[in-house]
Write a protein that binds this DNA or RNA. Structure first.
Lengths: 337, 337
DNA sequence: CTGTTAGCGCCTTCAT
DNA sequence: ATGAAGGCGCTAACAG
């Protein structure tokens, strides 16, 4: 059994109330007793029982993190950031992953709701109504990379539209006109935004109809691989491919390599996310870098502020975190016109 | 305020004890009252307060996971697995990352100890004495990929030695003799084991002295990049490079590509871990695949069994999880003798 | 079968 | 300044 406040009190020869007061600096205690208590606590290695505290304060000291399936570098970086930010605030991180559907999110949120003080939720696959329906929690929620505007929660999103538009524009500036797009999962808001950015950039360049240039894909390497095969087999002969994200782009590059098509000389390729994998790819990959660290830190900061009562109720924020265009060798060769 | 057992009792017109009995199926309750309670609980959306339960049972329903810095796919896959296994057992996962030194692990473990029922710790950088010193916890611990034999804890490791030896042997079989090794962080037990496997395989092939073939490196892409530059600049002209892990190998390949050296035609490259990144690399990377899923599932299973009292005290297990040699294009070309 | 009660460990009035 | 006592939400033993 663990050492309790009673043990400390007995050893110090005082009451538990005194121990509590000393350890929390809650009010004056005679110096000699104070020292006695401190010594006893140290000797016994006492630390208060979190469950008891939690029962009393209605605070768990924990932050919940709900994610879709966590594959790859993006998520490890996100968790790293969140963990760091949480630790700075003496909060622990409780994670729950692999949620794809509204029902799974619902269940996980209900389960976590009572065990955490606040929730960080990344649910790109959920639209605003679905997100609203999972929002029946006691704990405040911050959505990340989730299109949940108008909900009673803070929402921090990457500029998926702007990043995609910038990438497309970069490709156009290189002289490309036939730019194929590998779509992300169109159930996901971020993927839809990226597609929209691409289409708007193309339209602004006078290319209104991109139907033939758009190919089904996804966020995994395999998706990019398959899409690239389809693109090559199709009648369109694009000079550039904009992939749904970096992993997808890596699959595209892998397929092109297998097919003996040179990147970027025959086909330029660009990704999205700015992973380290993109930097060290062969060839290094042009991409739009999202600042995972920044969005994570903002989310935790916001949650902590709300928990501390520093934010007025009903004051919800909706921020767009900018992304950076990073040009590398995979799009380095301009098209000879 | 949250709905408590009293609310349910009042609404159902029974005592709180009856509610508890119904909800836990702990003993017989008259059918009509049972239904009343069930209905009231459902209407109110009641679920017991975890903190109260925890205070009573001395169980938190949580598993703690302590990791070194979590970068990349390896960790996201591990967390995925652990989360899945935890959820099957109705446990939540509490994670704490970025621990590099004994002191950091120590602190994190003390902090988590009271909040979780069991701990999964991956601390490759810690030797057995250091691991022993952090082991002053009330909760049972399972070490993963940590060289902590002889400690009062279960230890599940990958066969780092065997995998590395198999990779080296594969390279030797391809006709390579000058096989350079990029070392992992030699403070880490797994990296030391991999180096040992390499040396033993080389020695068995009659190459006793590998000093000149070994280069400082690390587990990140940058480490591989820098090491490859050093290797190329050195007087040894290896025909193959065995990297500390897949990320390191990707850095090596990236550097060789930058230097205009063809892989595998001029230099073959192999990694370790079996990440998806290796599969989709250009060229696809030969590697030794570790089964993260298996080690994660085993760890959780062992912890759960111990928490359920199914394991005799003091019965600690030390298992080595085998790794699979995966041969791909990066080592496909035999050396012409 | 069911209601009452005693804690689990802690903080916070309320007395002293 | 300090000790005693109540109660956070819940389960388990104890009465009825």
């Amino acid at each position: 059994m663990s050492v309790t406040i009673h043990d400390v009190a007995r050893r110090a020869g005082v009451s538990i109330a005194t121990v509590s007061r000393v350890l929390n600096n809650t009010c004056k205690v005679r110096e000699d007793k104070r020292l006695l208590v401190l010594e006893a606590a140290r000797d016994l290695g006492y630390s208060p029982n979190p469950a008891a505290l939690s029962l009393l304060n209605k605070k768990t000291g924990a932050l919940g993190v709900l994610l879709p399936s966590v594959h790859g570098e993006f998520f490890s970086e996100l968790l790293n950031t969140l963990d760091e930010a949480a630790r700075e605030n003496e909060l622990i991180l409780v994670i729950s992953t692999s949620h794809r559907h509204e029902a799974e999110f619902q269940k996980a949120m209900q389960f976590l709701d009572k065990r955490v003080d606040g929730l960080i939720v990344m649910a790109p696959e959920l639209d605003a109504p679905a997100a609203a329906s999972i929002l029946h929690t006691g704990a405040p929620v911050v959505f990340i990379n989730t299109y949940a505007e108008g909900l009673p929660a803070d929402v921090f999103n990457f500029d998926n539209y702007g990043g995609s538009r910038a990438l497309t524009q970069h490709l156009l500036d290189q002289g490309h006109r036939k730019i194929a797009l590998v779509l992300g999962p169109q159930t996901a808001g971020d993927a839809k935004e990226r597609a929209r950015g691409y289409r708007d950039a193309m339209a602004a360049a006078g290319i209104e109809d991109t139907d033939e240039l758009e190919f089904e894909g996804g966020y995994d390497r395999k998706d990019g691989f398959v899409a690239a095969e389809a693109i090559v087999a199709s009648t369109v002969r694009p000079t550039a491919i904009l992939a749904a994200n970096d992993y997808c782009a890596m699959g595209v590059v892998s397929a092109l390599h297998t097919l003996g098509i040179a990147v970027p000389d025959e086909i330029a390729v660009a990704g999205f996310d700015g992973l380290m994998s993109a930097k060290y790819g062969v060839p290094p990959l042009t991409t739009a870098r999202v600042s995972i660290g920044e969005i994570g830190a903002r989310a935790v900061g916001r949650l902590v502020a709300r928990l501390n009562g520093e934010l007025p109720e009903g004051d919800f924020d909706h921020q767009v975190v900018p992304v950076d265009l990073v040009v590398r060798a995979s799009t380095a060769t301009p098209v000879s016109v």
